[in-house]
Amino acid sequence: MEMALKERGLEPEQLNISMELGSTQAIKEVVAAGLGITIISSLTVRRECDQKIFKSLKIQDAPVYRPLSILTNAHQNSQATQSKDERLLIDLLHDHRLLSEILSKDYNELDSIE
């Protein structure tokens, strides 16, 4: 997050950061208690937003990405030993266009993706 802020000309030192927490659950509890705001993955708060506990604001024209890794069993590291479902998931994760389309959809709209 600090790198994304710096890329946009904002130094984290300029923000009034009052705490840093080590778990998503702790962050959600602090925000629910009215003690601050945060930038967090929308996927981690979807249920709370649906329940109107939180209000999610989209960061427009400033996508924040974070590197992700695909973890597999070390003993099944070749395509020949992967299950069909594992191969489908890995292929999906490498299809940036389709993955972006899926992630931008509302959960109820996923049936319409071809």
Rank of each mutant, 00 (worst) to 15 (best):
Q51M: 10
Y65I: 03
I102N: 07
S104E: 02
G22D: 14
G34C: 08
R47H: 15
F54A: 00
I39W: 00
N77D: 08
Y107N: 07
E7H: 07
H94S: 09
Q14V: 09
N73K: 12
D85I: 03
L93T: 04
E109K: 08
I37H: 07
K55I: 11
D85N: 10
I17R: 15
N77V: 04
D50H: 09
D111A: 13
I39D: 08
D85F: 02
L92M: 03
I53Q: 09
I27Y: 02
L10T: 06
D111N: 14
L71R: 13
D91P: 04
N73M: 12
H94E: 08
P12Y: 04
L57F: 15
S83E: 12
S56Q: 15
Q76S: 12
G9H: 04
N16L: 06
I27A: 01
L21W: 10
I40K: 00
L110E: 04
N73C: 12
T81W: 00
E11A: 07
P67T: 09
E114R: 09
V45W: 03
F54P: 01
A32K: 15
Q25S: 10
F54H: 01
N77Y: 03
I90A: 00
T44N: 11
A4G: 07
L35Q: 12
D50F: 10
E109R: 05
R97L: 05
K55L: 04
I53S: 02
I53V: 13
Q82Y: 01
L92G: 06
M19I: 06
L71A: 15
Y107W: 14
A33I: 10
G36E: 02
I59Q: 11
Q25R: 13
R97F: 08
S56C: 12
L43T: 06
V31P: 00
L57D: 10
Q14C: 11
M1T: 02
K55Q: 14
Y65C: 03
L103K: 12
S56L: 15
L68F: 06
I70L: 13
R46W: 09
E13Q: 04
L35N: 12
A74C: 05
V31S: 08
D106W: 01
G9K: 05
I53T: 13
L93S: 12
Q25M: 03
I37L: 01
E109D: 11
A32T: 13
E114N: 06
T24C: 11
E13L: 01
P67W: 12
Q25P: 00
S104V: 05
D111W: 12
S69P: 01
D111H: 12
L99I: 00
L15F: 09
Q14P: 00
G36I: 00
E86G: 04
H94I: 03
L15S: 07
D91F: 00
M1R: 09
Q82V: 00
M3R: 15
A4L: 07
I113P: 06
K6L: 05
C49I: 14
G9S: 06
K58T: 12
E29G: 14
A74V: 02
H75S: 15
R66A: 14
S100I: 01
L99Y: 05
Y65L: 09
Q14G: 14
R8S: 03
A80G: 03
I70T: 04
S78K: 07
S23M: 07
Q60E: 11
H96W: 09
L43A: 09
E101A: 05
K55M: 07
R8E: 06
E109A: 08
T81R: 08
